[in-house]
Nucleic acid binder design. Structure first.
Lengths: 240, 240
DNA sequence: TCGACTTATGGTCACTCTGACTATAAGTCA
DNA sequence: TGACTTATAGTCAGAGTGACCATAAGTCGA
């Protein structure tokens, strides 16, 4: 038995490694059109495997942290972000996700507001990417991002989730732009408005957004519940 | 440092244990009314912790199995069941789920057809329970079952999932009974019929169910897709 | 200052979906 | 044969939605 097979044999005795990762979405203006688009922060791998490639922020599960806390904590360390919206996405445990080790990742997904996203410490090893223009990432992270995008779209069609991508106050047009960016289709402003005004937790304020070159739109506020940190979240239906 | 604190200290160095468990639902006639109700199989703990208490079937993640395979395989071993519908539910990783160890459970949920459920080898250590009348289970398994029930209800309101609880052919009234059992509310037969006939994948056959003491209902068949074993599944929306 | 331009906002109309309800069909059972 | 039960078809009013039109209220350039 040579060294290689011994290593393989040893590895197959060890329990699978358990990691927590997070897909973080935020809106940033497109360079080309200036319209809001989905971006996400990635970190560069500084060790094998996939050394040098971009990957979702994450790390091993600390012994003293719940899964959600681990996601939240690790996020703060690697990207400096503390998202208000954080929810479990899926547990990925395919046999060949990683090379040289059996790896199980419990993945969370998060939404951050633009001002919060701006605080990210961009660096050599942390950078934001457009969600729809990703290069080849480490592990199966492309696939994971695709699934997170699917979940985001699906959830946006039902729940009141778009507001977690916006600031404290916003115009209805801004909400519509979020929907248009995420669902990638045009929406009728008048109909969209009618629907939003019929949903609960969207309260008009007495203020208007000025500085535009047209009629000033009214500002609204989201007064609904923020998901409980410990709660398992509802997740969207329909077929993938 | 005494022995106890040494043990605690050692444990906190070890990685959390990773287990796979499954919530399995099947329909069985209620003892009282005879109407179909939700049941699930549990296994008795034969070791510490929670020795002697009932728990979800499950076990450690074998090194050579994907998560879904592990769930499926373990299920067969402990209960003899091989569900056609099997989907990931959630990863539970609270700090105090288990006593004496840090335990992370990736939980699946499954639906089995009545004929399949009848094949279960009931024994001293495997028994079916009514889902709405559970005693106190091991670990946080009561909470997990509640969440699985919530997911089942939520998913039943959208997707075509009820058929996985029925046999090859069924009457529309049987489908309605499934909905009524799961959602716990009465449904108008005529309206329910109209909706089902409008959904795809429900095909009428040329046969009728005889032996009732009234007009023989037509038999239908589900011709839709069975969820891909490897696919991440869509999951229901709305708030919990 | 005025008119063009842009987005905000309010409303209409036809169509679909849904719940409540009525009526008839086709068996069994006493 | 008639009562009884469920199956099945259809009607009707109200809610919701997409397409579309009209007016409001600003900015901007001539």
């Amino acid at each position: 038995m040579n060294a290689t097979s011994a290593n393989v044999s040893e590895r197959s005795q060890q329990p699978p490694s358990l990691a927590i990762s997070t897909v973080i979405f935020a809106l940033r203006p497109s360079e080309a059109t200036g319209r809001p688009t989905l971006w996400l922060p990635l970190v560069r791998r500084i060790r094998q495997p996939y050394l040098g490639q971009w990957a979702l922020p994450g790390g091993p599960l600390a012994h003293s942290e719940s899964l959600q806390d681990a996601a939240s904590h690790n996020l703060l360390e690697t990207t400096g972000l503390a998202p208000k919206y954080l929810e479990q996405l899926y547990a990925f445990g395919g046999l060949h996700r990683s090379v040289g080790q059996r790896l199980v990742s419990i993945v969370y997904w998060a939404l951050v507001q633009p001002d919060e996203a701006a605080l990210t410490r961009d660096s050599e090893n942390v950078r934001w990417f457009r969600a729809d223009r990703l290069e080849v990432l480490a592990f199966d992270h492309n696939e994971i991002v695709e699934y997170a995008l699917w979940r985001l779209r699906n959830k946006m069609e039902y729940g009141s989730i778009a507001y977690h991508l916006l600031g404290e106050r916003f115009t209805l047009a801004q909400v519509r732009e979020v929907y248009e960016a995420v669902l990638d289709k045009q929406l009728d402003p008048a109909n969209f408005r009618r629907q939003l005004r019929a949903t609960p937790h969207i309260e008009p304020t007495d203020d208007y957004l000025t500085g535009t070159r047209h009629r000033p739109p009214r500002l609204y506020r989201y007064a609904g519940p923020v998901p409980d940190a410990g709660a398992r979240q509802p997740q969207p239906a329909r077929s993938p």
